[in-house]
Design a protein around this nucleic acid. Structure first.
Lengths: 155, 155
DNA sequence: GGGTGTTCGATGAAGTGTCAACCACGTCTA
DNA sequence: TAGACGTGGTTGACACTTCATCGAACACCC
């Protein structure tokens, strides 16, 4: 007996499903808002935010990839698309001829400056405004703990 | 003064980022596990689970789409791919000649029966085991509340 | 110096999701 | 009953992500 896996209790099942649902709905809604009223995807947004936080708006693919936790292939494809739209440019790297830099353009800065306030407002209206500070603390703690376990587990 | 949007407080910023990170990491990890050791995507899994919970493993596109909260286009594309792999079949509908049914096949049942225990175990090991029952309750409540606000807002 | 192995990034293919347009069938109404 | 409208599902184009593979450049070590 007992070779069957432990199934979820009703509470666990319910909590897990609610959580998944929250991710799908909230993520979808925020992505759609960002796209329709700023022309950026969540990924574009993340790249641009990061580049504005870095000296000269300029960083190696490698380092940007690490910061965003993106695979190098994803970096390459995505930056190529963003470069096609003029949000960033690719620059050769003198010190290491294999490498390259991603550099934010003026258009990229303009895009993120226009998008950020709206996005923050959306995060407030759709999420933060409906969560108490205590709940938010619980969420943050739990998130960090689970992520750090994931990191321990398999790098 | 004050035309600038309310920015996030450091606590809000931190909580929000941790939460996003959790979603990306946990979701990615679970998806990869499911894919590599059962050959199913999360979407495949959701479809098959739902079909096993329904009489004769058979449901209208429409109803399945509503249950999963998928757009009809997504249904059509995804079911076509799953049918190509033999997990489900499409069946014409006698009562309404426009409509169609999605029906799980034996291969589909076999796939989900093999995948489900592993997936549940993964959800436990990667998530539930690191969250207290109290935290889980908070998460569930908060998720439901936010989702219901999203529903109120714009259908 | 000349392997040997490693790192950086590019590339192509395949699966996924969204949007917009479309078609075929049903329903309602004048 | 004919025309208008609504509904169920399909299709094609495009954006995004992952995977596997590749070529070029670097680093180490004999």
């Amino acid at each position: 007996m007992g070779e069957t896996a432990r199934w979820l209790t009703p509470e666990e099942q319910h909590a897990w499903r609610s959580f998944i649902r929250l991710q799908e709905r909230l993520g979808g809604r925020l992505a759609r808002l960002l796209q329709t009223d700023s022309g950026l995807s969540g990924a574009d947004f993340a790249v641009l935010v990061h580049l504005t936080d870095v000296p000269d708006g300029r960083q190696r693919y490698q380092d940007l990839g690490r910061a965003l936790e993106w695979e190098k292939s994803r970096m390459s494809h995505h930056i190529a698309r963003m470069a096609g739209r003029g949000l960033v440019v690719r620059e050769e790297c003198a010190e290491d001829a294999r490498g390259a830099f991603v550099v934010i353009t003026d258009a990229g800065r303009a895009a993120i400056e226009a998008a950020a306030p709206r996005h923050v407002e959306a995060v407030r209206e759709l999420f933060l405004d409906h969560v108490t500070p205590a709940e938010l603390r619980v969420l943050a703690q739990l998130s960090e703990r689970v992520v750090s376990k994931l990191d321990d587990d398999r790098p």
